[in-house]
């Protein structure tokens, strides 16, 4: 574990050197994604300043949901973006074979290979939204809430990574796995709003099938003192479950990997 941590440091420093070679590019990439989120928030503001609440949720409460899911997304975006490119950049080119002959775990190698700065924008916007929402709603910032927030965000990040890993593993058969990942990943759009605005079917799907609800709605509900029962605490469990499922899919795919030849 310690070895892997220090190895990650080495990879990270190398990657940073590459990124710093082109500073303006780094800045454009790092801030670009925040524009998408700002557009979404602006749209929400435009609508919600004209109505008292969205299904009983005030503007700031919705922002908390939106902010939490945005931070969770930024974690995958920064640390696991190579899951998107596994198919076309590593498997198709045959470069993935390089990972298999090295004395470290190939999944670790894949993830450590490229820290993606494009996620930084989302991290900043998400954090700003959560801070804004919490101060506007007078949620006291105690050690307990801080701890809960950190766990919630890590849980959300893990769920994003698990789902992307699960779908990216299809690259071992399909080579181009991006459409599959794209499909599942985009369902997180649902989790930008309080799940109560959807029907039962969608709510259940977002809780148990594609559990993005644990990345935003359930922790936000808990922080706002809304009763969601045990679901406020089940996030980490669900994340571990999905992570192990995804890792198994990855292992299974790896065992069936035949390389692309030439």
């Amino acid at each position: 574990m310690r070895r892997y941590l220090s190895l990650y440091g080495v990879f990270f420093v190398q990657r940073l050197k590459i990124l710093m070679e082109y500073r303006v590019n780094f800045l454009i990439g790092a801030t670009s994604t925040s524009f998408l989120q700002i557009g979404g928030v602006l749209a929400m503001w435009v609508v919600m300043r004209q109505i008292p609440s969205l299904n009983g949720w005030s503007f700031d409460e919705v922002l908390l949901v939106f902010g939490l899911v945005t931070i969770s997304e930024s974690i995958t975006h920064m640390f696991a973006d190579n899951l998107w490119t596994l198919g076309w950049q590593y498997i198709r080119s045959g470069e993935f074979d390089r990972f298999l002959v090295r004395p470290i775990d190939p999944l670790f190698h894949l993830l450590a290979d490229r820290f993606c700065h494009d996620g930084i924008g989302n991290l900043l916007v998400g954090t700003a939204l959560v801070v804004k929402a919490m101060s506007a709603l007078h949620i006291p910032f105690t050690v307990a809430t801080a701890l809960y927030l950190v766990i919630a965000v890590l849980t959300g990040g893990a769920i994003f990574i698990a789902l992307n890993l699960l779908t990216a593993s299809s690259a071992f058969w399909l080579v181009d796995s991006i459409p599959v990942t794209f499909l599942v990943y985009n369902t997180y759009e649902f989790a930008k709003y309080p799940l109560t605005i959807y029907g039962r079917g969608i709510r259940i799907a977002l809780t148990w099938l594609i559990p993005y609800g644990f990345a935003s709605f359930y922790p936000a509900s808990y922080l706002l003192g809304r009763n969601v029962g045990a679901l406020a605490w089940m996030g980490p469990l669900v994340a571990v479950l999905f992570m192990s499922l995804a890792y198994r899919a990855w292992k299974f795919g790896l065992a069936h990997y035949t390389s692309t030849g030439s």
């Binding site: 590019n25 454009i28 670009s32 998408l36």
Partner: peptide, 10 residues
């Protein structure tokens, strides 16, 4: 600019 992915997103 040599960076065009981010510009496209913006």
């Amino acid at each position: 600019s040599t960076e065009t992915w981010g510009l496209g997103v913006v």
